[in-house]
Write a protein that binds this DNA or RNA. Structure first.
Lengths: 343, 343
DNA sequence: TTGAAAGCGTTACCAT
DNA sequence: ATGGTAACGCTTTCAA
C-alpha cells in the first residue's frame, strides 16, 4: 500500500497535521512545531520514503498545477509548418519556470462539448485557433476556469481575453503590396477545414475590408479541397484573378505544387501569398511571399496572461475586464509575388 | 459553489450512488435503476449543468488518464532538429485515440529527484533520452507507476522496458561505410551535455565496438563545447582523424559550420557523419550523411506498450518481465562522406 | 504548542 | 432494486 501522511505521523509519534505543516514549509499553516519534532518528522518521512499524493492535494486544494493547451485540429508536428511547434515553445517558456505542467487534451474538443474544461482538471486553458459553435461558445463563457484564446479575433467569446494577429493590418499590407504591383483581381484561398474556423473567416473578412479600402473589387473566396483542377485556369490570360492570398503557408505550398503541375507559372501568371512565413517559404519554388506573425511571442504572452488570471482567481481578486491584444504582422516579400499579368 | 452529485441526487429525489450509476453508464456498478428514475436523474443533471469532477474521480479511482512524457533536456521544438516533434507525433498517435491526456512535466526531473513520478498524478510515464544518476535509477525502479524508457539501451534501469535504436548495428553500418571509403582513423564527437546521457555513452561504446570489429584503431572521443578551434587541424594533412561521427545532426551542423569557417573542406579533408537523418541533412552544405532512426515509430510503439502496461496494472494481471526492443537503423549516405584523405 | 475532527466529490460495499 | 455508509489522502479549522 501507499505510504500516507498518517503513517509518517505514527512513526514520528505526532499527528498528521504536524507532518503536513512541516513538509509544506509551515508557511501557510497556523500550526507550529518544535524544531526537534520537525526533525523527527522529516526523518520519519525519509525512512518511509513518503511521497505526498499530488492527487489528494489537488483534490483538497482545488488546484492542480496543470494548464491545458487545446488546438482546434489536433494534428502532428510538421517541420514544414511550425505553427504548433512555435506555440508550444512560447507556452513552455511561460509555464515551466512557473512550475505548471502542460497538458495536451484533445478530448476537450469532443463532440463540440467543451464541458470538460471546468471539470477541475486544469487550473487554466489556452485555446488555440478556435472553431466554435454557439453551444460551445456558451459553455466557454460559463467555464469555471480561466481561459485565454489565441488566434481568435477580439470578442469571439464574450468576456474572454484574446491574443490574436492583427489580420486587418496584415491584409492591408498584403493588399497594398499587391496594388503596388498592379494587381486588382484578388482571391482568398482556404481549405474546407479552416474555412469554418474563426480565424479563417476573420482573414477572409480582413482581406475584403482591405481591398475595399484600396478601391479594388471584392475578392472571391476559393475553397480548395483535394481537387485543384480549378487552378488550371490561371495559365490562361483570361483568368479571373492575378493574385491568390492563401490561408496558410502549407496551403500555399500545395497551390504552388499544383500550379507547377498545371503549367501555371508563379509569379508570371499569378502571384501567391502565404500566411505564417515559415521556413518552408525559403525552400519552396519559387520562394513564398508570406505574412509573418510573431507566433511564439504571442503564445508566450498569452500564457503569461493566463497564469496571472489563475493567480488572481486563487487570491480572490476581483476579475478585471478581459483584454484583447492584437499583434502587428509583417509581410515577408519573396519571389512568389510580382507584377500583375496584363490581360 | 460547485454542483455536486448530491445536488443532482437531491433534485431527482434519489441517492447519490444512483446518479453515479446512471451517469457512468451503469456498466461497472452493481446498482440498477428503473428507466423512469434514470431519465429523471439525467434530466436533473442537465438542469443543474452537473459536471462530474474529474479530480474527485481520479482521486477515488486512482486513475487520472494522464501520461507524462519526460525529456532529458526540456528544450524547444526546433524545425532543424525534429527529434522532439517526432517523438510527440508518435506519442500522440498512440495516446489520443485511447483517451489519454499527454502531460509535459519538466518538474519530474528537478534535482535529479524523480520521486514525483509516483505521486499519483500520472497513470504512466514515458521517459525519453534519460541521463540517470544512481539515486534516480533506484527511484525509477521502485516507482509505483508503469514506466517505459525511450532511447535507453536495454538494462539501463533494471526491470524497465526500453525502446531503443540499435546503436551497435548503426555504428557497424557507419564503420563499414567509412572503411569502404578507406577511412581508418575515426573520432566520435559529442557535446558536453549529451556526453553524460546514457545514449551518448551507448553510441560511443557502439562505435568503439564497431571499429574493433573492423580491425581499426580505437576512435577518440572529442567533446565539443563552445570552442571549436580544435577543428582547425583537419585542414592539415597531419590531422589525427579522417572521419568524425557526431552524436546528432544538430552537432554535425555546428561542426560543418566551423569547418567552413576554418577552411576545412568536407568531405575532401574530413568526412562527417550525423545522427537522426533529419531534414536539415538535405539542406546543409554539404548534404549530411546520417544515421536514420525510426523515431516516430519507436515513440508510437513505446507508448502503446506503456498503455498496455497501464491496463495490465488496472486489471491486476501479473506483471510479465520487461522487454527490450531494438530498432534497426539505416544509414542515409549523402555528400559529407567520401574517400579518405591519404596523408 | 498540539490534536481531533470535518470535509473535498466520488464510488464500492453492505444492508435493506 | 435501492439507499446508507465508509473510505480515498490531504489540509484546515477549531478546541484543548
Amino acid at each position: 500500500m501507499r505510504v500516507t501522511i498518517r503513517d509518517v505521523a505514527e512513526r514520528a509519534g505526532v499527528s498528521a497535521m504536524a507532518v503536513s505543516a512541516v513538509l509544506n514549509g509551515g508557511g501557510g499553516s497556523k500550526v507550529t512545531v518544535t524544531a526537534e519534532k520537525a526533525e523527527r518528522i522529516r526523518q520519519a518521512a525519509r525512512d518511509l520514503r513518503y511521497q505526498p499524493s499530488h492527487l489528494a492535494r489537488s483534490f483538497r486544494n482545488r488546484k492542480t498545477g496543470q494548464v491545458a493547451v487545446v488546438f482546434q485540429n489536433f494534428g502532428r508536428f510538421i517541420p514544414q509548418s511550425p505553427y504548433r511547434a512555435e506555440v508550444m515553445n512560447g507556452v513552455m517558456e511561460a509555464l515551466f519556470p512557473n512550475d505548471y505542467t502542460l497538458s495536451l487534451c484533445p478530448k476537450l474538443m469532443r463532440d463540440g462539448d467543451p464541458g470538460f474544461v471546468s471539470d477541475g482538471r486544469f487550473d487554466g486553458v489556452l485555446w488555440c485557433r478556435p472553431d466554435l459553435t454557439e453551444t460551445s461558445t456558451l459553455a466557454l463563457q460559463e467555464a469555471a476556469v480561466p481561459i485565454v484564446m489565441m488566434h481568435a479575433p477580439p470578442g469571439t467569446v464574450l468576456g474572454l481575453p484574446t491574443f490574436c494577429a492583427d489580420n486587418d493590418g496584415a491584409m492591408r499590407r498584403v493588399a497594398s503590396h499587391l496594388v503596388s504591383l498592379g494587381h486588382e483581381r484578388l482571391a482568398f484561398v482556404i481549405d474546407p477545414v479552416s474555412e469554418h474556423s474563426v480565424e479563417g473567416q476573420a482573414r477572409a473578412e480582413a482581406l475584403l475590408l482591405a481591398t475595399r479600402r484600396a478601391g479594388l473589387p471584392d475578392p472571391d473566396v476559393i475553397i480548395l479541397a483535394q481537387d485543384h483542377s480549378i487552378l488550371q485556369r490561371y495559365a490562361e490570360p483570361s483568368a479571373p484573378h492575378t493574385a491568390l492570398i492563401c490561408f496558410s503557408d502549407e496551403l500555399a505550398c500545395f497551390v504552388l505544387d499544383s500550379c507547377a503541375r498545371y503549367g501555371v507559372k508563379v509569379p508570371e501568371h499569378v502571384s501567391i501569398v502565404g500566411f505564417d512565413s515559415s521556413p518552408v517559404c525559403e525552400t519552396s519554388q519559387p520562394r513564398l511571399t508570406s505574412v509573418a506573425q510573431p507566433v511564439e511571442r504571442m503564445a508566450f504572452e498569452a500564457t503569461m496572461h493566463l497564469i496571472s488570471l489563475i493567480r488572481a482567481v486563487e487570491e480572490g481578486s476581483p476579475s478585471s475586464p478581459a483584454t484583447s491584444t492584437l499583434y502587428d504582422c509583417g509581410l515577408d516579400i519573396r519571389d512568389s509575388t510580382s507584377f500583375a499579368r496584363s490581360n
